[in-house]
């Protein structure tokens, strides 16, 4: 019996591994530029990721931002509505664009 108990302790011990102390997940707030279309960006992008993922891409072309937005829909399954795509891309290019179409 003791043996069985010992084995089951070994087997289940790891399943109940717990964090002993409080976990504090660092929060970093990213300053994002305000402008036309911001509400749409906030609603669609912030539901999954911080603005850091936008700001840290570096200035990019309109095509880049369109492709990124499409990637969010195709691969990450963003439930963004079709009519919001233009607004989001326009905002991203306006504020985080490099002035180039392609």
């Amino acid at each position: 019996m003791k043996k069985i108990l010992f084995i089951s302790l070994l087997a289940f011990g790891s399943l109940f591994a717990q964090v002993q102390e409080d976990i504090e997940v660092p929060y970093i707030s990213y300053e994002i530029k305000m402008g036309k279309g911001f509400d749409t960006v906030q609603a669609n992008c912030l539901m999954c990721h911080s603005f850091g993922y936008i700001i840290n891409q570096g200035p990019q072309s309109r095509e880049f931002w369109l492709k990124k937005t499409e990637k969010m829909i195709t691969h990450f399954k963003s439930p963004m509505m079709e009519e919001d795509i233009d607004t989001v891309v326009e905002y991203l290019f306006e504020h985080y664009g490099n002035g180039k179409e392609k």
């Binding site: 539901m47 999954c48 990450f76 399954k77 963003s78 439930p79």
Partner: peptide, 8 residues
């Protein structure tokens, strides 16, 4: 896990 349930 991702924030949105349909994200792979």
């Amino acid at each position: 896990k991702a924030a949105y349930y349909e994200t792979p």
